[in-house]
């Protein structure tokens, strides 16, 4: 028996929003410790990894590990039937899970709706993501990162990210001209959500597709801060941390032939 009840149901809507543009079908891997998802986009240059800890749910019950194969488009349609303030409970039979039950309860518990989503068999390759000591780790307000991606898309479909110890610089060059945004580290003790920090082992300069980066910024509502981790010849890591877990996006850099 699998059961996971999330008092903050809106979080599940936001999580789905942050994944569904990148991936259409995905396995939710359920275990004693929580729920996780790992999936690549169609072109296999981007990967999303989601982890939700069991402690974030109340209650959480999972007797044995199993996977829920979900079409995210269909799940999204059903999730639209949940109110923003609703408590959401996910239920499935772990021995023969051919459907996922979703229960939406309003705060006063007067309205309860129940939906069953048909599950599918998804054969997905699972990659083991290595622990990496990144050359540069940057924390910045997530809304700022979203704005930079949106703004620079006006100029080009690619962005070069340069990180040095006193600056992170985003540069775009296109047919109409060029644009860049530079941010300096700031520490605002009273407003940690607005701070920018740079941890640097060595300077990096890498180029990425803005289409993907702006897709990743769908995670913005999940966290005030975003973490960017860069290393030469490694996929960029973009992480949004939540109380209940994290969503991580990886993107392969554009490299010369």
């Amino acid at each position: 028996m699998f059961e996971a009840r999330l008092t903050q149901g809106a979080l599940l809507k936001r999580l789905l929003d942050s994944v569904k543009e990148l991936v259409t079908d995905a396995n939710f891997d359920c275990s004693e410790t929580g729920i996780s998802l790992q999936a690549m986009d169609n072109s296999h240059v981007a990967l999303v990894s989601l982890s939700l800890r069991a402690e974030g749910f109340n209650p959480y019950r999972c007797d044995r590990g199993f996977s829920l194969g979900v079409n995210l488009n269909s799940l999204n349609k059903i999730m639209k039937c949940a109110g923003n303030e609703d408590v959401i409970t996910l239920k499935a039979d772990d021995s023969s899970a051919d459907s996922l039950c979703l229960l939406f309860e309003n705060s006063s518990n007067e309205r309860v709706s129940e939906y069953e989503l048909k599950l599918m068999d998804i054969d997905q390759e699972h990659l083991s993501i290595p622990e990496t000591d990144y050359d540069a780790t940057v924390m910045m307000p997530s809304a700022e990162f979203q704005r930079i991606c949106r703004d620079l898309m006006v100029v080009s479909e690619s962005v070069t990210i340069d990180v040095s110890k006193d600056e992170i610089k985003f540069t775009a060059e296109g047919e109409l001209g060029t644009g860049n945004v530079k941010l300096k580290p700031t520490s605002t003790i009273d407003k940690p959500e607005e701070s920018i920090t740079i941890e640097l082992g060595q300077t990096v300069s890498l180029q990425f597709s803005l289409k993907y980066l702006s897709n990743f910024t769908r995670g913005t509502p999940l966290s005030d801060q975003v973490m960017l981790c860069l290393s030469d010849n490694m996929p960029l890591l973009v992480e949004y941390k939540m109380d209940i877990g994290y969503i991580r996006y990886y993107l392969a850099p554009k490299v010369g032939d």
Partner: peptide, 12 residues
């Protein structure tokens, strides 16, 4: 000309 490797080429 720039190209992108797949994620699997980095993480196997």
């Amino acid at each position: 000309k720039l190209k992108q490797k797949t994620i699997a080429e980095y993480f196997s």
